[in-house]
Design a binder for these strands. Structure first.
Lengths: 164, 164
DNA sequence: GAAGATTGACACTTCAATCTTA
DNA sequence: TAAGATTGAAGTGTCAATCTTC
């Protein structure tokens, strides 16, 4: 790890950033990172599905609506709240509505708009899901790391966030 | 690595693991972690698609075949190599084949089996993709982190891997 | 014309069912 | 019956096109 390596003709001193490629070890860490995150996401999703019949997408939508004033939001506000594109939200709401989790209503103040309303069933489903879901996060992520490692995660994600 | 932890029962004071939920801060770190990984994956995927016309799934399949003896593998070996279920591989190969990236042939030694062969076009596409892709990994991941942080990533993923 | 939202087409993923050969 | 592989259905996600209203 001290010396530079590589396939592609990397070099030690002057900046060759346009040519340098990751070393085998760097690539290994990258793959571990991305695969671990994916595995965790998948395990959380599977548990949420099995125990509560909700997908992670369902969960974030229900969470956003639960926290909203009057348990309702304009479509575009909801999209912003969960960080989705409008089209993705539309498709997902179309799948949630027949399941009775949400309801769509016309917007009183803007005839173009739509409001998404949390139904009683949706609120129940979210309430039942929250403790199991948070417990799983604790078990699979928080408890798997030391406080020091947890702090390192925060540091690392902040560093990665600054790029692009 | 100094202080003890946890999972399974080690604890500092009395164990409340069955009831405790993540703190607000722990949840924030969790979300940052999962969202950062997702954002990175997405950015890499978008670049690979734009610059090379390949999805990450295409890339791993082409990589596995490139490294294989004779640039060909039995379907199930390929599935194992990339860590997919057979059905997923079948569906993906069905999309890659008409694009001329791979070809499927009957297996000589087992009439049930199929062999997946890397075509010339597939080899070209992979060759064109590899440097841009690895450069992007370096730029977005490796170069965004200090050597110390990179080592911390390896440490953290190892810790997370041991769970479940 | 621009904004809010939906729709259609297509790529991806998983599960269960199926088909063929061992 | 079990193994190798494919298929169909349904959920998910992105992009571009569309429709309505501002």
């Amino acid at each position: 790890m001290i010396d530079a390596s590589i396939k592609g003709g990397g070099a030690v001193a002057r900046d060759t950033s346009r040519r340098r490629l990751p070393t085998r070890e760097e690539l290994r860490v990258w793959r571990e990172f991305i695969e671990t995150a994916e595995a965790l996401r998948g395990e959380l999703a599977a548990r949420l599905q099995d125990e509560c019949g909700l997908s992670p997408a369902d969960y974030v939508v229900l969470l956003a609506l639960s926290e909203a004033e009057g348990r309702r939001l304009r479509s575009s506000e909801l999209a912003a709240a969960v960080g989705w594109q409008r089209s993705r939200l539309s498709h997902h709401l179309a799948r949630m509505e027949p399941r009775g989790l949400i309801r769509r209503e016309d917007c009183a103040t803007d005839n173009r708009g739509a409001e998404v309303v949390l139904t009683g069933g949706g609120a129940d489903a979210f309430r039942r899901a929250t403790v199991p879901h948070l417990s799983a996060v604790r078990e699979l992520f928080v408890d798997a790391l030391t406080p020091r490692q947890l702090a390192a995660v925060a540091d690392i994600t902040a560093a990665l966030r600054t790029v692009r």
